[in-house]
Design a protein around this nucleic acid. Structure first.
Lengths: 351, 351
DNA sequence: AGGTTTTGCGAGAACGTTCTCGCACAGAAT
DNA sequence: ATTCTGTGCGAGAACGTTCTCGCAAAACCT
């Protein structure tokens, strides 16, 4: 437990009988060193268990080989874990480490997190941006010229590289599947931050994923000739109590939908919950489609039909793009959109 | 996009008309500075948007205020995401950041990860250790005197502080519940690394959680007077193909169990999968209990009975203990064990 | 032999902080 | 008027690297 000071390159140099400069050259093989001294230094380093202090190196070379991740921890959506793992693994493959921060959809903590990460001199950032009108911390000057890649959600107003998914197409495909199976009364339960409880009137601002899913839903419905009157759009706060109340009110409305599409898994869980309470069997009495595949959605009986997004690819591509921009700055902003896939299981009944 | 060099404390000092030393004192308020100069320096710093370089500060003061997290990313167990979020949040509350690394149960990448984190001068480590006979990288000397807290799993041979859960009691409670409901043929599907496919003979080494769950199961069974002959213990590789084959073989055996306890959620998913294929309804034709609560286990119909572990507390307590040891070294090793809770839902039938 | 290039290495600066030390000057005590 | 205590501040070292520069010796050329 004695905190004996870690050996420095000076210790290695002394033991090898050379100068620190030469020791550094020998270990990081650059410059000119003789074979002999390289050998001497290497073994000296090994003998005393020398490991270079990455802090000091970072200080000197101006790069920490660390990327900052600002993500929202959202357990139900199976996004946080899959994306985080993909990002951490991809980063390691590029020889980068990941400093992680969590924001609970709060723009202020997001802003604080970005500052803290920048203070720690991360080389770049991957961010899942929170909903907000203003993103003062994401201006290029605020970032000290360090590259940023947005994932999951775009911010159309800002010239930032992003990697997102084509949720509109996936959602449209899901709607088409349901209408092909005979559903004519469609429910759409949309997670929306900022609304109290739930409402049928659209909030003025929504994150890009929700907008995309809404557009896809709309396209699917019009392509299937479902009139507006047979669509029930409900915007709902991301609270179990609110979402369950919202589902109940949908089922009790004048136009109870035979299928409910949910814009995220919190909402899907609410549907499951309420259906369970009422003895409604999913895939028979009530149909359900949600976003993001998961082991649970696949293993449940019935299996839940989902709009699957390539979350792992999203993470690894984000890292690749970020590293690209870290190592050769001045690239154009890119807005990548990855394809989604509708996976039909048995939660949508044929009627 | 111009990479204008970030302002340093020298810039602040110049603008305020003082020396860097005074500027530093004014900003970090220590030493002796007059009210006036504090004010001058503060506003100078604000005007040019000065933010201290944490790297340089860390270099000087010898502390990065960063903790390293080495965790296994295991999506199905809903442990990775909950624990990670709890740790990140707790760390931030203590004004620490988290460098995260993932090991896929591989001792070599774990060792490498620990080294990398130490090179980055983390102040301490939180580790979910992989199964192995030897843990050469976890000796106190290898860690350079930096504190470590193990979570989820203990390593009894090493004098390391750990925060784990009392899985034995939870498992015993689960068994007692099942036998009280009339089950007399018990299946136990145990995830074991290193076994090929599946087998009924116990591997020589198991991670502490699996050992604890096994002990709890054994105690529950003997307390309920279930003879060994009516227990079917199967050790299984953590691969969907293996676990599904294992479940199938259990159901087809001479002594098909009426209830299957699974030692982790990968195994539980296999049970769900095979039961679904065979048209066996969980909670009626086949009963199931698994470990770790999740939104899905609660929302499914029927709800899955689980041995719930306080994962968030586990994470935040681990951080608290670690920070304690970082800030005042030389504390005794502590092996905390948090209580588990058996949550009875409807996946266990009464027969 | 003489000059020129190449090779190996050390001295020392630099990265941006913090912090010890000492100096000058103020006001208070003798 | 002289000594003392205290206050505010600057000079400079230190943290552990990397990297530029210059210098000596060795190698190469005529």
């Amino acid at each position: 437990m004695q905190r004996t000071p870690a050996p420095t390159i000076a210790d290695v140099a002394e033991r090898a009988g050379v100068s620190p400069a030469t020791a550094s050259r020998a270990l990081s093989n650059y410059g000119r060193v003789s074979k002999d001294t390289v050998e001497k230094v290497r073994s000296a380093a090994a003998e005393i268990g020398y490991r270079p202090n990455e802090l000091a190196r970072a200080m000197r070379v101006g790069s920490t080989r660390t990327i900052g991740l600002v993500i929202i921890a959202d357990f139900t959506n199976a996004f946080f874990d899959r994306a985080t793992k993909a990002i951490v693994d991809a980063a390691r493959a590029h020889d980068y480490q990941v400093l992680i921060t969590n924001t609970d959809e709060d723009i202020d903590v997001e802003q604080q997190a970005v500052l803290t990460l920048l203070d720690k001199q991360v080389d770049g950032l991957i961010i899942v941006p929170s909903l907000a009108k203003e993103h003062p911390h994401l201006g290029t000057t605020q970032l000290g010229g360090r590259p940023v890649v947005l994932i999951d959600r775009r911010i159309d107003e800002l010239p930032l590289t992003s990697v997102t998914t084509d949720d509109a197409s996936g959602t449209r495909a899901a709607v088409l599947d349901a209408t092909a199976k005979g559903h004519r009364k469609l429910g759409f339960l949309i997670s929306a931050v900022g609304v109290p409880e739930f409402t049928t009137i659209a909030p003025t601002e929504m994150i890009s994923t929700v907008r995309d899913r809404s557009n896809g839903f709309r396209r699917g419905a019009t392509d299937s000739n479902i009139p507006i009157a047979d669509q029930l759009w409900v915007y709902c706060a991301d609270e179990p109590s609110s979402s369950e109340a919202a589902v109940a009110s949908m089922l009790d409305s004048d136009m109870p939908p035979s299928v409910i599409f949910t814009s995220n898994n919190d909402m899907a869980l609410a549907v499951l919950q309420v259906a369970g309470q009422r003895g409604l069997a999913i895939g028979r009495d009530l149909s359900l489609v949600t976003v993001d595949d998961s082991v649970w959605a696949a293993a449940m009986v019935p299996g839940i039909s989902v709009i699957a997004r390539p979350v792992e690819e999203l993470g690894s591509i984000a890292v690749a793009r970020l590293v690209e921009r870290i190592e050769s700055p001045g690239q154009d902003v890119e807005r990548l959109v990855l394809p989604t896939q509708y996976i039909s299981r048995s939660s949508v009944a044929t009627i």
